[in-house]
Nucleic acid binder design. Sequence first.
DNA 1: ACTTGACTTAGAGCGCGCTCTAACTCCCAA
DNA 2: TTGGGAGTTAGAGCGCGCTCTAAGTCAAGT
Lengths: 121, 121
Amino acid sequence: MTIAQVAQRTGLTAHTLRYYERAGLMLEPPPRGDNGHRRYTERDADWIALLTRLRASGMPITAMRRYAELVRRGRDTYVARKELLEAHRADVIAKIEQLRSDLEIVDYKIDLYSRRIMGEE
Amino acid sequence: MTIAQVAQRTGLTAHTLRYYERAGLMLEPPPRGDNGHRRYTERDADWIALLTRLRASGMPITAMRRYAELVRRGRDTYVARKELLEAHRADVIAKIEQLRSDLEIVDYKIDLYSRRIMGEE
DNA sequence: ACTTGACTTAGAGCGCGCTCTAACTCCCAA
DNA sequence: TTGGGAGTTAGAGCGCGCTCTAAGTCAAGT
Protein backbone atom coordinates (compact mmCIF):
# COMPACT_ATOMS: atom_id res chain seq x y z
CA MET A 1 0.00 0.00 0.00
CA THR A 2 1.31 3.42 -0.93
CA ILE A 3 1.16 6.39 1.36
CA ALA A 4 -1.58 7.87 -0.83
CA GLN A 5 -3.70 4.77 -0.42
CA VAL A 6 -3.32 4.79 3.33
CA ALA A 7 -4.15 8.48 3.33
CA GLN A 8 -7.28 7.78 1.32
CA ARG A 9 -8.28 4.98 3.63
CA THR A 10 -7.67 6.72 6.93
CA GLY A 11 -8.70 10.22 6.00
CA LEU A 12 -5.30 11.58 6.99
CA THR A 13 -3.02 13.33 4.51
CA ALA A 14 0.32 11.91 3.39
CA HIS A 15 1.91 14.82 5.23
CA THR A 16 0.22 13.82 8.44
CA LEU A 17 1.18 10.18 8.01
CA ARG A 18 4.84 11.16 7.75
CA TYR A 19 4.40 13.45 10.73
CA TYR A 20 2.90 10.62 12.79
CA GLU A 21 5.85 8.44 11.88
CA ARG A 22 8.32 11.15 12.93
CA ALA A 23 6.32 11.59 16.12
CA GLY A 24 6.99 7.97 17.03
CA LEU A 25 3.44 6.77 16.59
CA MET A 26 4.17 3.87 14.26
CA LEU A 27 4.90 0.44 15.69
CA GLU A 28 7.84 0.32 13.33
CA PRO A 29 8.85 2.46 10.37
CA PRO A 30 6.98 1.13 7.36
CA PRO A 31 9.20 -0.87 4.98
CA ARG A 32 10.39 0.78 1.77
CA GLY A 33 10.12 -0.37 -1.82
CA ASP A 34 13.10 -0.30 -4.22
CA ASN A 35 12.39 3.33 -5.05
CA GLY A 36 12.59 4.26 -1.37
CA HIS A 37 8.84 4.83 -1.13
CA ARG A 38 6.98 3.64 1.93
CA ARG A 39 5.06 0.40 1.49
CA TYR A 40 2.55 0.14 4.25
CA THR A 41 1.38 -3.24 5.39
CA GLU A 42 -2.20 -4.11 6.22
CA ARG A 43 -1.19 -4.07 9.88
CA ASP A 44 0.18 -0.53 9.48
CA ALA A 45 -3.10 0.62 8.00
CA ASP A 46 -5.08 -0.96 10.82
CA TRP A 47 -2.82 0.61 13.41
CA ILE A 48 -3.20 4.04 11.80
CA ALA A 49 -6.95 3.58 11.72
CA LEU A 50 -6.85 2.93 15.46
CA LEU A 51 -4.70 6.02 15.96
CA THR A 52 -7.27 8.17 14.15
CA ARG A 53 -9.99 6.92 16.43
CA LEU A 54 -7.95 7.63 19.52
CA ARG A 55 -7.15 11.10 18.16
CA ALA A 56 -10.81 11.73 17.43
CA SER A 57 -11.57 11.01 21.05
CA GLY A 58 -9.09 13.71 22.04
CA MET A 59 -6.08 11.64 23.02
CA PRO A 60 -2.98 13.84 22.73
CA ILE A 61 -0.08 12.83 20.49
CA THR A 62 2.16 12.26 23.51
CA ALA A 63 -0.23 9.72 24.97
CA MET A 64 -0.52 7.98 21.63
CA ARG A 65 3.26 7.79 21.53
CA ARG A 66 3.34 6.23 24.99
CA TYR A 67 0.72 3.76 23.87
CA ALA A 68 2.72 2.89 20.76
CA GLU A 69 5.80 2.33 22.90
CA LEU A 70 3.89 -0.06 25.13
CA VAL A 71 2.61 -1.99 22.14
CA ARG A 72 6.14 -2.25 20.77
CA ARG A 73 7.35 -3.65 24.08
CA GLY A 74 5.05 -6.62 23.69
CA ARG A 75 2.71 -8.79 25.70
CA ASP A 76 3.88 -7.88 29.16
CA THR A 77 2.59 -4.32 28.83
CA TYR A 78 -1.07 -5.30 28.68
CA VAL A 79 -1.74 -3.93 32.14
CA ALA A 80 0.01 -0.64 31.38
CA ARG A 81 -1.86 -0.31 28.09
CA LYS A 82 -5.15 -0.95 29.79
CA GLU A 83 -4.33 1.63 32.43
CA LEU A 84 -3.41 4.17 29.79
CA LEU A 85 -6.69 3.63 27.98
CA GLU A 86 -8.65 3.72 31.22
CA ALA A 87 -7.05 7.04 32.15
CA HIS A 88 -8.00 8.33 28.74
CA ARG A 89 -11.52 7.05 29.09
CA ALA A 90 -11.84 8.91 32.36
CA ASP A 91 -10.63 12.07 30.61
CA VAL A 92 -13.18 11.70 27.85
CA ILE A 93 -16.02 11.05 30.27
CA ALA A 94 -14.99 14.07 32.33
CA LYS A 95 -14.95 16.17 29.19
CA ILE A 96 -18.41 15.01 28.20
CA GLU A 97 -19.71 15.87 31.64
CA GLN A 98 -18.02 19.24 31.50
CA LEU A 99 -19.59 20.01 28.13
CA ARG A 100 -22.97 18.93 29.39
CA SER A 101 -22.73 21.29 32.32
CA ASP A 102 -21.41 24.10 30.12
CA LEU A 103 -24.50 23.66 27.97
CA GLU A 104 -26.66 24.85 30.82
CA ILE A 105 -25.68 28.48 30.53
CA VAL A 106 -26.17 28.34 26.78
CA ASP A 107 -29.62 26.85 27.17
CA TYR A 108 -30.47 29.39 29.81
CA LYS A 109 -29.45 32.26 27.56
CA ILE A 110 -31.35 30.85 24.61
CA ASP A 111 -34.42 30.59 26.74
CA LEU A 112 -33.96 34.17 27.89
CA TYR A 113 -33.78 35.43 24.33
CA SER A 114 -36.83 33.41 23.40
CA ARG A 115 -38.84 35.16 26.09
CA ARG A 116 -37.51 38.56 25.11
CA ILE A 117 -38.33 37.98 21.47
CA MET A 118 -41.84 36.91 22.46
CA GLY A 119 -42.13 40.20 24.23
CA GLU A 120 -42.41 38.85 27.74
CA GLU A 121 -39.69 41.25 28.88
CA MET B 1 -12.54 46.63 40.56
CA THR B 2 -8.95 46.27 39.52
CA ILE B 3 -7.78 43.91 36.82
CA ALA B 4 -6.26 41.66 39.50
CA GLN B 5 -9.58 41.39 41.28
CA VAL B 6 -11.43 40.48 38.12
CA ALA B 7 -8.70 37.95 37.33
CA GLN B 8 -9.16 36.44 40.76
CA ARG B 9 -12.90 36.31 40.37
CA THR B 10 -13.03 34.87 36.87
CA GLY B 11 -10.04 32.56 37.00
CA LEU B 12 -8.46 34.32 34.03
CA THR B 13 -5.11 36.06 34.24
CA ALA B 14 -4.68 39.82 33.86
CA HIS B 15 -2.84 39.05 30.62
CA THR B 16 -5.82 37.17 29.30
CA LEU B 17 -8.22 39.92 30.32
CA ARG B 18 -6.23 42.44 28.31
CA TYR B 19 -6.08 39.98 25.45
CA TYR B 20 -9.86 39.55 25.51
CA GLU B 21 -10.26 43.30 25.40
CA ARG B 22 -7.92 43.59 22.40
CA ALA B 23 -9.82 40.75 20.77
CA GLY B 24 -13.00 42.81 20.88
CA LEU B 25 -14.77 40.70 23.47
CA MET B 26 -15.67 43.48 25.87
CA LEU B 27 -18.94 45.32 25.48
CA GLU B 28 -16.94 48.50 25.86
CA PRO B 29 -13.39 49.18 26.99
CA PRO B 30 -13.44 49.31 30.77
CA PRO B 31 -13.14 52.85 32.14
CA ARG B 32 -9.81 54.00 33.54
CA GLY B 33 -8.91 55.54 36.87
CA ASP B 34 -6.72 58.65 37.20
CA ASN B 35 -3.61 56.50 37.07
CA GLY B 36 -4.70 55.03 33.74
CA HIS B 37 -5.51 51.66 35.33
CA ARG B 38 -8.59 49.79 34.25
CA ARG B 39 -11.53 50.03 36.64
CA TYR B 40 -13.90 47.23 35.84
CA THR B 41 -17.56 47.65 36.64
CA GLU B 42 -19.73 44.93 38.10
CA ARG B 43 -21.31 44.54 34.68
CA ASP B 44 -17.87 44.00 33.13
CA ALA B 45 -17.15 41.26 35.64
CA ASP B 46 -20.48 39.58 34.94
CA TRP B 47 -19.90 39.77 31.22
CA ILE B 48 -16.43 38.26 31.56
CA ALA B 49 -17.86 35.50 33.71
CA LEU B 50 -20.29 34.72 30.91
CA LEU B 51 -17.45 34.73 28.41
CA THR B 52 -15.54 32.18 30.46
CA ARG B 53 -18.54 29.89 30.48
CA LEU B 54 -18.98 30.18 26.74
CA ARG B 55 -15.25 29.52 26.27
CA ALA B 56 -15.44 26.49 28.53
CA SER B 57 -18.14 25.09 26.29
CA GLY B 58 -15.76 25.40 23.35
CA MET B 59 -17.04 28.55 21.70
CA PRO B 60 -14.20 30.05 19.62
CA ILE B 61 -13.00 33.58 20.22
CA THR B 62 -14.37 34.72 16.85
CA ALA B 63 -17.88 33.61 17.76
CA MET B 64 -17.60 35.31 21.12
CA ARG B 65 -16.58 38.48 19.30
CA ARG B 66 -19.61 38.24 17.02
CA TYR B 67 -21.78 37.72 20.06
CA ALA B 68 -20.27 40.75 21.79
CA GLU B 69 -20.93 42.83 18.67
CA LEU B 70 -24.57 41.77 18.67
CA VAL B 71 -24.96 42.67 22.32
CA ARG B 72 -23.40 46.07 21.65
CA ARG B 73 -25.90 46.70 18.88
CA GLY B 74 -28.76 46.46 21.33
CA ARG B 75 -32.23 45.01 21.64
CA ASP B 76 -32.94 44.39 17.99
CA THR B 77 -30.30 41.68 17.77
CA TYR B 78 -32.08 39.28 20.10
CA VAL B 79 -32.98 36.97 17.25
CA ALA B 80 -29.44 36.96 15.89
CA ARG B 81 -28.02 36.33 19.34
CA LYS B 82 -30.39 33.47 19.91
CA GLU B 83 -29.45 31.98 16.56
CA LEU B 84 -25.76 32.28 17.36
CA LEU B 85 -26.22 30.50 20.66
CA GLU B 86 -28.42 27.84 19.08
CA ALA B 87 -25.77 27.17 16.46
CA HIS B 88 -23.25 26.83 19.23
CA ARG B 89 -25.51 24.55 21.20
CA ALA B 90 -25.81 22.31 18.16
CA ASP B 91 -22.01 22.24 17.90
CA VAL B 92 -21.63 21.27 21.54
CA ILE B 93 -24.25 18.54 21.30
CA ALA B 94 -22.59 17.19 18.18
CA LYS B 95 -19.28 17.17 19.96
CA ILE B 96 -20.72 15.29 22.92
CA GLU B 97 -22.20 12.71 20.58
CA GLN B 98 -18.91 12.42 18.75
CA LEU B 99 -17.03 11.84 21.98
CA ARG B 100 -19.53 9.29 23.10
CA SER B 101 -19.11 7.33 19.90
CA ASP B 102 -15.31 7.68 20.05
CA LEU B 103 -15.46 6.12 23.49
CA GLU B 104 -16.62 2.86 21.98
CA ILE B 105 -13.27 1.90 20.53
CA VAL B 106 -11.58 2.81 23.81
CA ASP B 107 -14.00 0.64 25.78
CA TYR B 108 -13.58 -2.16 23.29
CA LYS B 109 -9.81 -2.07 23.64
CA ILE B 110 -9.97 -1.91 27.41
CA ASP B 111 -12.21 -4.95 27.40
CA LEU B 112 -9.78 -6.74 25.10
CA TYR B 113 -6.88 -6.08 27.42
CA SER B 114 -8.92 -7.22 30.40
CA ARG B 115 -9.49 -10.56 28.73
CA ARG B 116 -5.86 -10.90 27.74
CA ILE B 117 -4.70 -10.09 31.23
CA MET B 118 -7.13 -12.67 32.58
CA GLY B 119 -5.48 -15.12 30.24
CA GLU B 120 -8.46 -15.82 28.05
CA GLU B 121 -6.34 -15.19 24.97
C1' DA C 1 14.15 14.04 -24.81
C1' DC C 2 10.63 15.73 -21.92
C1' DT C 3 6.89 16.21 -19.11
C1' DT C 4 3.97 14.53 -15.54
C1' DG C 5 3.15 12.72 -11.30
C1' DA C 6 4.05 10.24 -7.16
C1' DC C 7 7.05 10.02 -3.95
C1' DT C 8 11.33 11.56 -0.75
C1' DT C 9 13.65 14.84 2.90
C1' DA C 10 14.49 18.73 6.13
C1' DG C 11 12.59 22.23 7.84
C1' DA C 12 9.49 26.42 7.79
C1' DG C 13 4.85 28.18 8.64
C1' DC C 14 0.17 28.38 10.48
C1' DG C 15 -4.10 28.99 13.42
C1' DC C 16 -5.65 29.02 17.87
C1' DG C 17 -5.63 30.81 22.40
C1' DC C 18 -3.23 32.29 25.25
C1' DT C 19 1.23 33.67 27.90
C1' DC C 20 5.01 36.24 28.66
C1' DT C 21 8.70 39.97 28.15
C1' DA C 22 10.56 44.52 28.14
C1' DA C 23 10.37 48.91 29.15
C1' DC C 24 7.76 52.11 31.29
C1' DT C 25 4.76 54.96 34.90
C1' DC C 26 2.88 55.59 39.29
C1' DC C 27 2.15 55.39 44.16
C1' DC C 28 3.19 54.17 48.71
C1' DA C 29 5.81 52.74 52.77
C1' DA C 30 10.36 52.42 55.31
C1' DT D 1 15.32 58.37 48.46
C1' DT D 2 14.78 54.28 47.51
C1' DG D 3 12.67 50.21 46.75
C1' DG D 4 8.63 47.45 45.92
C1' DG D 5 4.38 46.41 43.89
C1' DA D 6 0.70 47.05 40.74
C1' DG D 7 -0.51 48.58 36.75
C1' DT D 8 0.43 50.15 31.45
C1' DT D 9 1.82 49.19 26.30
C1' DA D 10 3.47 46.88 22.02
C1' DG D 11 4.81 43.04 20.52
C1' DA D 12 7.27 38.47 20.84
C1' DG D 13 6.90 33.60 22.01
C1' DC D 14 4.73 29.19 22.97
C1' DG D 15 2.42 24.49 22.68
C1' DC D 16 -0.33 21.77 19.97
C1' DG D 17 -1.27 19.42 15.81
C1' DC D 18 -0.85 19.68 11.85
C1' DT D 19 0.17 21.69 6.98
C1' DC D 20 2.93 23.14 3.56
C1' DT D 21 7.26 24.40 0.83
C1' DA D 22 11.49 23.61 -1.57
C1' DA D 23 14.41 20.87 -3.73
C1' DG D 24 15.25 16.57 -5.17
C1' DT D 25 14.67 11.41 -7.10
C1' DC D 26 12.57 8.15 -9.86
C1' DA D 27 9.34 5.74 -13.35
C1' DA D 28 6.17 5.79 -16.92
C1' DG D 29 4.00 7.81 -21.05
C1' DT D 30 4.23 10.71 -25.60
